[in-house]
């Protein structure tokens, strides 16, 4: 069996169509690699683990931000169109430059362990005698499943409208993972407030595209928004 796949070429500024033989279980990335190895050896695409774990191979597949390595060809009817994520500057073909997100991560206050923990016993074994239960950690653990594939940023219309005034869902989820860490001593409400969390109008597009199935809007963005409002009221 064969399928048609159209891949964006930055040199020609258009989609180029290829016909690729299909086997059961093939994903879009298999088809892109097939094109690279058989038809155009200079085509640029980014991938690494090819197992949905590293988050390198994000692209828009038939308009939907998706991981190429997790999107099965048999889940798509008709032609397959693969274009790069539009929220980032294009480097070449399917490759974009997401390194501006490092700047946001640097600016976000990092995890800082609570003084109460440190004062009990010092040094590297300071956490040795801490008691934390499963229910203490599960809330923050949800956001730590994030593989930073950037798909949520690509799906976010608040970013599309407000540009760099809003840091986007991935970073709010990161802030939530730190704020909800029971050992953390800082508060990232001011950071989120200054960085446009208010622009999010909770349409949950980010949750829909998240390959790690994190409920970004319900469990990270809304609670953080509420905490910010609480602070303002008090």
């Amino acid at each position: 069996m064969e399928r048609k796949i159209k891949i964006f070429s930055s040199k020609q500024e258009r989609l180029i169509e290829y016909t690729v033989p299909i086997e059961h279980g093939m994903v879009v990335l298999d088809a892109v690699i097939y094109v690279l190895e058989h038809f155009d050896s200079s085509i640029s695409a980014r991938w690494n683990c090819k197992a949905g774990r590293c988050g390198s191979c994000g692209a828009e597949i038939n308009g939907i931000p998706s991981l190429m390595c997790k999107t099965r060809l048999d889940s798509i009817n008709g032609d397959i169109e693969v274009v790069p994520m539009k929220v980032f500057p294009n480097v070449k073909d399917l490759v974009v430059d997401p390194t501006d997100t490092w700047r946001i991560k640097k600016a976000m206050p990092n995890f800082k362990i609570s003084e109460m923990v440190i004062s009990k016993s010092s040094g590297i074994t300071a956490t040795k005698n801490i008691t934390l239960y499963e229910y203490d950690v599960t809330r923050a653990q949800e956001f730590k499943k994030c593989i930073e594939c950037f798909l949520c940023l690509d799906s976010c219309h608040a970013i599309r409208v407000h540009k760099s005034a809003y840091i986007g869902p991935m970073h709010v989820a990161k802030a939530a993972s730190l704020d909800m860490n029971p050992l953390d001593s800082l508060d990232r409400r001011d950071f989120l407030d200054k960085n446009g969390i208010r622009f999010c109008n909770v349409t949950k597009c980010c949750t829909e595209v998240c390959p790690a199935k994190i409920k970004i809007t319900d469990n990270a963005i809304i609670p953080e928004k509420e905490r910010i409002n609480d602070k303002k009221i008090i």
Binding site: N110, F111, I113, I124, T125, A126, T127, K128, I130, T131, L132, Y133, E134, D136, V137, A140, Q141, K144, L178, N181, L183, D184
Partner: peptide
């Protein structure tokens, strides 16, 4: 063992036992 505790101090959250370890 020290490297494990260090990860906790960097913000890692390990799965816990019923006793909270």
């Amino acid at each position: 063992p020290d490297r494990v505790y260090e990860l906790e101090q960097y913000g890692a959250l390990f799965d816990r036992t019923p006793q909270g370890k």
